[in-house]
């Protein structure tokens, strides 16, 4: 009797703890986003999206910044997606599970925790200087792709591992080759998870400032990039730049730019959720 009471109490206590954890998280988020929207929504306008930065806060816009962000976003995705997913598939499905792969696994997990500015320094030396790309969008996208590769690899492997081994075994037992099994069974079943990982990783890349400043992304660019070899700026750099200005009007601009950045991130997450749901409906074992 006593025992049941105590476990009921524990059960309840844990529920309360979980609930308060969620309320705390949501509340912080709501306050943060609410504050930003309150500050910046009034500043959003077509002009704001299509003007160049200016010393007058009310004339400033984020034209080159948001286009730069889109460029970086698309290129980073194109580079990191095939590389990361490919590496993940190899490590999970083909690589033999010896000491070497264990070592690799630990290293990749560690790489995911390396501060982003270190990737910036690497990118500066390798892409900007040795490969002579200059401070171009391509150099920036490659740097960010490196930065998020570990995350994509790890999440790809997690997703592949979540596919029941009975499915794979059944496929092989029916005479399918390894490739057929991966392509027809494992990948479709795990694609939702892989996509989630990729999108989360890219959402992280979108918000990065430090590595891009290191490789020489600019703060004032009066022209829109036309190719991956052009110089560029991105929203986070513009936001940081405005936040640190003495005049309060720039803080409002920053808030408005944050809304645009948030919108881009939400949009991407939305796409991910949509794709994942579509993929999961397709699978009927």
């Amino acid at each position: 009797m006593n025992n049941t009471n105590s476990s009921r109490f524990k059960d309840k206590a844990f529920r309360v703890f979980g609930l308060s954890a969620i309320i705390f998280c949501m509340l912080t988020l709501v306050i943060f986003i609410g504050f930003i929207i309150y500050q910046g929504a009034g500043r959003l306008s077509w002009d704001f999206m299509t003007s160049l930065p200016s010393r007058f806060a009310e004339r400033s816009g984020i034209y080159t910044a948001w286009i730069g962000t889109l460029w970086v976003l698309v290129l980073t995705t194109l580079i990191s997606f095939p590389l990361g997913v490919g590496a993940g598939i190899y490590l999970e499905e083909y690589g033999n599970k010896g000491k070497l792969s264990k070592l690799l696994e630990i290293n990749i997990a560690n790489l995911a925790g390396v501060p982003s500015i270190i990737y910036g320094l690497l990118g500066l030396q390798v892409f900007v200087r040795m490969m002579k790309m200059g401070n171009s969008i391509l150099a920036g996208a490659l740097t960010l792709a490196l930065l998020i590769l570990p995350i994509i690899i790890v999440s790809t492997r997690e997703a592949l591992r979540a596919v029941p081994s009975s499915i794979k075994e059944a496929s092989v037992a029916l005479g399918a080759s390894k490739w057929q099994t991966i392509w027809k069974q494992t990948l479709p079943a795990s694609f939702g998870g892989i996509l989630t990982g990729v999108i989360l990783a890219i959402s992280r890349a979108v918000g990065e400032t430090a590595p891009l400043i290191v490789i020489g992304a600019l703060a004032y660019v009066p022209f829109v990039p036309e190719s991956p070899f052009d110089e560029f700026t991105v929203l986070p750099i513009q936001i940081f730049n405005w936040v640190s200005r003495p005049q309060h009007e720039f803080a409002i601009n920053a808030a408005a730019a944050i809304i645009v950045l948030l919108f881009i991130t939400f949009l991407m997450n939305g796409i991910a959720v949509y794709l994942r749901n579509r993929w999961q409906q397709k699978i009927n074992w």
């Binding site: 160049l52 930065p53 200016s54 010393r55 401070n135 400043i213 020489g216 992304a217 600019l218 703060a219 004032y220 660019v221 009066p222 022209f223 110089e231 750099i237 730049n241 200005r245």
Partner: peptide, 24 residues
């Protein structure tokens, strides 16, 4: 930066074809 940005901004009306970029 803010001064150079402002100069670059104004210089655009003087010489629109010169591409002035400013980093931080």
């Amino acid at each position: 930066f803010p001064i150079s940005e402002a100069v670059a901004e104004e210089f655009r009306t003087e010489a629109p074809d010169v591409r002035v970029t400013v980093g931080v």
